[in-house]
Simulated assay, not measured.
Amino acid sequence: MKNYSIHSVFTLVAAAALLTFTSCEEQQEFGVRKIYMPQAAIYNGGLTHEYPVPMPNLPVDNYRIREDGMLDIILGVYRSGEGDLSAYQVEVFIDEEATARAAAATNRGVELPRTLCTLPERVSVPDGDRQETFNLRVDLPRLIAEYPEYNKNRMIVVVGIRNPSKWELNESLSRTTVIIEGGTFLPVVPILKNGDFGTGSSESWHLVNINNKPFELMKIDEEKGELQIGVDNYSQYGGDSRFMCYQQLDSPDLEIGKTYVLSAMVSIPAQDFYMTADKKNLKREMDFGFALFPKTTNMATQNDYKPGDTKFWYMDVTMDNGKGHYPLLDGTAGFESFSSIHLNKRPDSMGAGEFTMDADHMGGYVVFYVRLRNTCPDVKTIRVTDVKIVAK
């Protein structure tokens, strides 16, 4: 929170609301002793009682995030009128019916889950004061964990006051429609899950030993946050073998016709593939592809990603003769972007990882595909992390 106390926040809010209130009523109305919620009038003069969080153009935050991660939204009560500032109390409650109506009427609106918010049962204003603050407390850690998709929504709850112990309630300003902007408080949900290969990522990525070789070329190291690709002494197995690590493209944020960028960071140590000194006699012993497969693919048996069907989009690194750069032979300088080391691609835009989503790939797969040929001696461990798809 900016360098203001909660009391300063409320005073500013109450003052702004009071100016709005008095501009809508006759000036002598201020002399009438009425209790109301200033937040119900501050945003648009009380026409809708909306109270956005954060509040646009307010010089201070109308919320704070506590050390334990809880979100406190600052609300309050205020008594207009002159004279006699004796103590009073009001009850605080959530208006369930009004909340449902407001959520239905708000663009991107959803009801704030009731189990994640708390309010005091009542607010007491001491002798000599006309106002007091209270907090709508939201369990932000649970909200992030249980409703991550709400980062694109506005979460709504209508808070009201009633049954004042003294004075009269201003019914027209006794309820505040709190509208929490999800994008401010909840992280963006990535299109790809667990692209960092960290804790829990094995639930999102699937490994396939297509030819059922008696070893596993690929593994996920969640502690290091890497997909690791490697095998010692492949020559003992011989023949061609193919392996995949894939994830289905099932994010609701993907849209047909929209352009995205697919990216990953990869670290390749120098490999012991066969090549003459003049680099003219090279055995093509390994292909390493980063690809998008259409939704019709049989992911248990897919034999290749290059030939035939042009719906298989990819960038890859191979040991093809005639290429001027050999990342699989020379290695990389630590982690580099896959697009910066690729040798082949389809379509051309995939050279930069760019693709436009279509109906064939909606529900398809993002894939790391490796093919080893008979003469491959071994594969020193290749590491992959930070896999992303982002809208361009």
Rank of each mutant, 00 (worst) to 15 (best):
M155E: 03
L186F: 10
E82Y: 14
Y150P: 00
N170P: 00
M70P: 00
E132S: 12
A87W: 01
A105T: 02
E132V: 01
E171T: 13
V77N: 08
S172G: 07
I161S: 06
Y63N: 09
E111D: 04
G69R: 08
S86M: 05
D127A: 10
Y147M: 09
S165R: 05
V77Y: 07
R122T: 14
G160N: 11
D95A: 09
I156Q: 03
G109N: 04
G160F: 10
S174K: 03
R66N: 15
S86H: 08
N135I: 11
N170R: 14
V123C: 15
R66A: 15
D84W: 01
R162E: 13
P126H: 04
C117I: 03
N107K: 14
Y88A: 07
T176H: 00
D129N: 09
Y147F: 15
T106E: 05
P120G: 13
G183C: 09
S124D: 13
D68K: 06
Q131A: 11
V157W: 01
A103V: 01
D129T: 01
R175M: 09
F93D: 14
I156F: 02
S80L: 13
V158E: 01
I180E: 03
P59E: 08
G182F: 04
G128W: 13
S124T: 15
R142K: 14
F134I: 10
M155Q: 05
Q89L: 13
P126I: 06
L136H: 06
E171V: 13
N135T: 12
I161Q: 07
E168Y: 08
L136Y: 05
L173D: 02
N170I: 07
V138N: 06
R137L: 08
E146K: 09
Q89G: 12
P113R: 09
M70E: 12
V110W: 02
T106R: 03
Y78T: 05
I94M: 08
R66L: 15
A102L: 08
E132A: 15
L140N: 06
T177W: 00
T177I: 14
L71G: 03
A100D: 07
G128T: 10
R175V: 04
L112I: 07
I156K: 07
K166P: 02
P113Q: 05
E97M: 05
N170D: 15
G81D: 04
T184E: 08
